[in-house]
Design a binder for these strands. Structure first.
Lengths: 160, 160
DNA sequence: AAAGATTGAAATTTCAATCTTG
DNA sequence: CAAGATTGAAATTTCAATCTTT
């Protein structure tokens, strides 16, 4: 192994590493932009129902879990801070979409419970959201949708 | 085709459609959460460099394009509104990371130009970001990274 | 009139400090 | 003291109105 082949080798490796690194940078940028596009698209549609994307997700979470949830857990699930959820729940409660109830077993906890009105609004929101889902149906095969689901789930776990 | 087989058939289809629909809902929720996780992770690391995730992306964009960019184009690229970029560039300019220059060919336009200091900061930020990239390297094979890149690129185009 | 940017106000999110219960 | 939530202030993002140039 002469010096020159060594140099050749490392420069070759650097190139590969550089390319991989550039790819990862693109990936992170893409992740950032894709979500922002999705959010503004969904937000635009949800205006008709007078819900923001974040509020929509809170309602969906409450419905999918099927029982009242401590505010801290909601925050964790949406990957935001607790104080944000406190205020979001204020807004949702002001519109009668959720109510605060207290956990008898641990009186520090405040639980958010979805109301009937909240269910109805969330239902309408889900219908509105169908337009966005159509985009996914049209442009991605079932296999590709599964791939995305798998890869993003893993990403979520990695960074949880 | 009797009534009962027809009912069987449609209920079967509904089930499939329902499952697909639930999958798409999960996909959208995942997209939302993954980005938020990524952003808070990157933001946490970038605190050391005193940059936000969004600022980081602006600097990276300016570097990757290699020339001063009209504010409107930056907004479009980050999928945010123009007035937001006006104020972000205010903040970046206050720190000496970019400067405003005027387009002689179209005097309505204001271009953001990255400074030497901006380049240095962005360089440091990129190094800090390496920790996040490591997560991707460790948990995803090269093929999977390519898949993600391809699928997210497509998603970005669809909603552009 | 349309495109590009800015301004100031409103809404949302984050941060630090505080309060209550375990 | 730790966990959970709230409060008020600060930072960021969005919205509507305005200003300049094409």
């Amino acid at each position: 192994l002469t010096i020159s082949t060594f140099l050749l080798y490392t420069s070759h490796m650097n190139k590969i590493i550089g390319e991989e690194d550039a790819k990862l940078t693109r990936l992170l940028g893409l992740l950032y932009r894709t979500e922002r596009t999705a959010e503004s698209r969904v937000n635009g549609l949800l205006q008709a129902v007078d819900l923001t994307c974040a509020q929509h997700h809170v309602l969906q979470l409450l419905i999918s879990v099927g029982e009242p949830l401590p505010l801290g857990q909601i925050a964790e699930n949406l990957h935001t801070v607790r104080s944000n959820i406190t205020q979001m729940v204020d807004r949702l409660a002001a519109e009668g979409l959720v109510t605060r109830i207290f956990d008898p077993t641990d009186r520090r906890r405040v639980l958010a419970q979805i109301t009937e009105e909240g269910r109805r609004r969330s239902e309408t929101a889900a219908q509105v959201e169908n337009q966005v889902k159509q985009d996914l149906l049209v442009h991605f095969s079932p296999e590709e949708r599964d791939q995305l689901l798998t890869l993003l789930s893993r990403l979520e776990k990695v960074w949880k």
